[in-house]
Design a protein around this nucleic acid. Sequence first.
DNA 1: CTGCTTGACGCAAAGCGTTGCAACACCATT
DNA 2: AATGGTGTTGCAACGCTTTGCGTCAAGCAG
Lengths: 148, 148
Amino acid sequence: MPLPETEVPGALQTALVSRGIRMTRQRRIILEIIETATQHLDAAQILRKAARVDPNINRVTIYRTLGLLKRHGLVDELDLLHVKGEGHFYERRPQRDHMHMTCLRCGKVQEFESDLFDRVKGQVERDCHFHILLARFEIGGYCASCRK
Amino acid sequence: MPLPETEVPGALQTALVSRGIRMTRQRRIILEIIETATQHLDAAQILRKAARVDPNINRVTIYRTLGLLKRHGLVDELDLLHVKGEGHFYERRPQRDHMHMTCLRCGKVQEFESDLFDRVKGQVERDCHFHILLARFEIGGYCASCRK
DNA sequence: CTGCTTGACGCAAAGCGTTGCAACACCATT
DNA sequence: AATGGTGTTGCAACGCTTTGCGTCAAGCAG
């Protein structure tokens, strides 16, 4: 995940409120966690962090809030090809789409942006008359360190 | 899924046996179902079809056989961006990778091969020194019919 | 500030997929 | 054709995620 978090604090909250979504104590906690995350989190990790602020927060609320953010295109869901187990991981939707490469040996996840990647999406939009809202490109294999 | 099934019958079974994998009655049934499928099947559909041949076959066996085929690179697992529910879908690994575009309105799934797509993978291999074994490119949006 | 409507929360239960374990079946060897 | 070792199966139980439902609280109107 891109480390420099060059974003206005509370941007997710602002985005939801501007769409007329009701803001609750629980949602504020979850959004704050996602905004300040420096790595891909899964639902259990988000729950654990949230429980430190409000021990009564329920797992179901985590899942429902993640679903809400997904539907509004504010977070992307990854499964990293199930290399790290069956769970899903979440990240704020970035300015520009990127690919995720997961090493099948060491489990490290790299991200990669590319003009070619953007051009493939352009080709799909043109050739297939398909209006893209979501693009997930996940790659599995061996990273530079592990392929030696 | 590419409709013309231009493949030797029993190719999956041959591939497994040649790798020294033990062939069982249950596996033969499951492989046959996957080979003759004309659309992406999920585990429950495979189980239902298998139960018509052997009512005692267990769902765990379905999951384990799918895991085996995945590990050997003989089938690809898709989640079609969870548009059709949380389950996973399976298809035999094709000669050439393709993208999957799922319409968020009507649920239709299209496939698309592209040189650009192949070139992105080449770029990742070169620029990131990453040895690709698996590539999944899933797109969500509105198809030509639904975007009108 | 108070009341009201509607959406969100928490709980319980169900669905999908995985894991541990004992019994079984494949198949190589004899 | 019988035997034996090893991998596979089925069952039960568990973990992750979603769904149904009654209660509660956000935030608009007065």
